[in-house]
Simulated scan of single mutants.
Amino acid sequence: MPVRKPWEEALPKRGRAVVVTGASGGVGRAAARAFAARGDRVALLARGREGLAAAADEVQRAGGEALVVTVDMADAKAVEDAAQKVVDAFGHIDVWVNNAFAGIFAPFTEITPDEFRRVTEVTYLGYVFGTRAALRHMLPRDRGTIVQVGSALAYRGVPLQSAYCGAKHAIQGFNESLRCELLRDGSRVRTTMVQMPALNTPQFDWVLSRMPGRARPVAPVYQPEVAARAIVHAAGHARRREYWVGGSTVATLMANAVVPGFLDRYLARTGFDAQHDEGEAEGPANLWTPADGLRGRDFGAHGRFDGEACAGSPQEWLSRHRGRVGRVVAVGVGVLTARWLGRRL
């Protein structure tokens, strides 16, 4: 039998009890399906009832067990109650995925204080409240994994998304602090963060926008299943502190570390047009009320960019198979070295 790595002892390969926030659409919806395909029990947390019902059906058809919990992640008490419902139903929590968010596409000066506060409460404090609720049940068992779904924007701010970028930066700092504390305590509870590229999700049709046309992701765009695979992998390999998904994420974060001033000027020139699409927004935004309730339909995992979205990412595959690739490279180098030495001798 294969020997399991020490950090995987707390996470059985199948049948885990998994919580996914923001599970009614987009990345959360795709991640819920991916966990279900492993036979996991998946608790679906979000506000939108139509989306949650459809997500639960998909989880069950994929081979998992679904639990629907309607909750606003900005409400700390409601999040604690939601976690307790999961434990009452599943017995414990093995994996908690923080993914729910809110956003606004607008210049900072056109965002009201209440709107900025709402984005911060959902996107940042929602992760804080979710993490706290997960730890309440994981720490006594001394096992479990928390996956923070991040973004390249956790390191690199872009125009028109000041509230969202600020929240993602805050999550990054919060998660690093928590990780240090868990390591200091010798805890077997793990936390990791997955930094995502631009994704083809419905958010661009339901996020509040004050742009002249419809909002869109900055190309290149990836399908939400790329993100879902990375999240599932991170949940089982959480000793690694962070995962970067997509070549664009790697390029952005490396450039920002080396030439941040250049990126400031580059995004000032290109960042507005790159996030603008032709046409008019579909209807009411979901900042205060779930979009599926406002529009009476389920949005699913995919947005309107299927025609250009990449279904795979070589970088994401390499990230998930880093150990295997490293061994192959090491063997290759060893063979070449032996041949070279053979010629020399």
Score class of each variant (00 low, 15 high):
M1Y: 11
M1S: 10
V3L: 13
K5V: 04
E8D: 15
R14N: 05
G15K: 02
R16Y: 11
A30W: 00
R38T: 00
A43Q: 00
G51F: 00
A53R: 03
A56Q: 00
E58C: 01
V59A: 01
Q60V: 13
G64Y: 04
E65V: 02
V69C: 04
D72V: 15
A74I: 11
V79Q: 02
A82F: 01
K85Q: 08
A89M: 04
F90S: 01
A100S: 03
A100W: 02
F101V: 14
G103M: 10
A106V: 09
P107N: 10
T112V: 12
D114K: 07
D114E: 15
Y127G: 07
R132P: 10
A134V: 05
H137P: 07
R143S: 09
T145N: 06
Q148G: 09
A152R: 10
L153S: 12
R156D: 14
R156E: 15
L160A: 10
A163G: 13
Y164A: 12
D185S: 15
R190L: 07
T191K: 08
T191M: 06
M193L: 05
V194L: 06
Q195G: 03
M196Q: 01
M196W: 01
N200D: 07
Q203N: 13
D205K: 15
W206M: 09
V207T: 15
S209G: 12
S209L: 11
G213A: 04
Q223M: 15
A234V: 09
A238D: 03
Y243V: 06
T249M: 09
M254Q: 10
F262S: 08
L263V: 09
R265D: 08
Y266N: 03
A268I: 04
T270K: 10
F272K: 06
D273I: 03
D273E: 09
A274E: 06
A274M: 01
H276K: 10
E278V: 07
E280A: 14
P284V: 08
P284D: 06
A285T: 11
P290D: 14
D298F: 00
G303P: 00
R304Q: 01
G312K: 05
S313W: 04
S319N: 14
H321Y: 15
G323Q: 12
R324H: 03
R324I: 06
V325S: 13
A330D: 11
V331M: 07
V331R: 02
T337D: 06
W340A: 15
W340V: 04
L341G: 11
R343C: 12
